[in-house]
Nucleic acid binder design. Structure first.
Lengths: 195, 195
DNA sequence: GTCTATACGCTGATAGAC
DNA sequence: GTCTATCAGCGTATAGAC
């Protein structure tokens, strides 16, 4: 177990990341984090001022990981539609949902500007990056140029996030896959040759 | 205040609906529900066996309300794309999010089949209804017939749910509006005349 | 740095009076 | 039906020893 080799501070952050993903902010207690990390009260309150402080460190780390994963696909080979397809169809545990997206439902996260900032930045970055890829596809004649790249980027990211929501409600990945397939089908239809 | 005229049972359900929307299941305590409803412990435990039982009643009621609202737009006048547009652009308090969608992030809801069932049924119904409207649009030559209606329905519903997620992260409705606009632009592009 | 002790309010419920 | 106890356990710390 890798986690056992880390120092207490990192173990606490990683445990907080896991629990925030599984149970959200409201559903995650300092005690539960400590137990998972194998650390005591004193250790946690030595490294962090409290639950919000530890959560902030955890959220920031998760946000970075998420952006890195996205970039791996979006900077890959192929045309715009192909890279977006690779991003959307990347292998995932759909029913776990998005570790950042799920936090938008946490009232205590959204209410705290410091805690919400990483969420905003993450989705802003992803939208901008997707818009870049789309604009590239438009410049190369892959996608109709009269469609607003920023809008399409938002639609694609929203379809992804909403796909998780539908999948968790259904208890299966099926709606997620449909949502992704539908989005890609529409995107392919938006080729200039089709107009 | 209408709520003061209702009996305790209905006040409890309505208060639970509000709190579940605002704070989710994990973030909502029986005590908070009682306070908002102006009812005591005894009253709540007389009408409901406990928190899950009351939550179930509240979720069912919210689910019905949601489906009714959707149906009002989807059964309205105009063509398929126009009705879907009316549905997506219906006036909403975007930052509040979806009262059903937000519950998919609640571990205790998803883990309990009885509590999850209304979520599954709601989104299944909405997807089927949207697919019907789309199929109608395809039969009338409004939308290309070679696109899978079930996939497009999932995409549209996911864009809606994901739009809420992005908006809550951003702290403004802007990403929601973009996601909706992008989805509608793509849908209009998918007309047979464009292929 | 990490541990144990201590604290106080809240959670989710039960029991019994009225 | 509704109210008021009462309860064991958890949530979120603080204090101080080591």
């Amino acid at each position: 177990m890798y986690i056992l080799l880390m120092n207490a501070r990192d173990r606490l952050i990683e445990s907080a990341q896991e629990l925030l993903w599984e149970r959200g902010y409201v559903g995650t207690s300092p005690r539960a984090i400590q137990e998972r990390a194998g650390a005591g009260q004193g250790s946690m309150y030595h490294h962090f001022s409290g639950k919000p402080d530890l959560a902030l460190a955890a959220v920031r780390r998760s946000a970075e990981a998420l952006c890195a994963l996205a970039e791996a696909e979006l900077a890959g080979p192929g045309g715009a539609v192909q890279r977006i397809s690779a991003y959307l169809r990347r292998e995932r545990d759909v029913l776990r949902g998005c570790r950042i997206g799920r936090l938008t439902q946490d009232p205590d996260i959204v209410a705290d500007p410091a805690l919400r900032q990483p969420l905003r930045e993450t989705f802003d970055r992803l939208r901008r990056r997707l818009a870049e890829v789309i604009a590239e596809g438009q410049a190369r004649g892959e996608i109709a140029a009269d469609l607003a790249a920023a809008d399409l980027a938002a639609t694609i990211l929203a379809a992804l996030q909403g796909g998780y929501v539908l999948a968790r409600a259904a208890g299966t990945a099926e709606p997620f896959d449909r949502a992704v397939d539908g989005a890609l089908a529409l995107l392919r239809r938006a080729a200039p040759s089709s107009s």
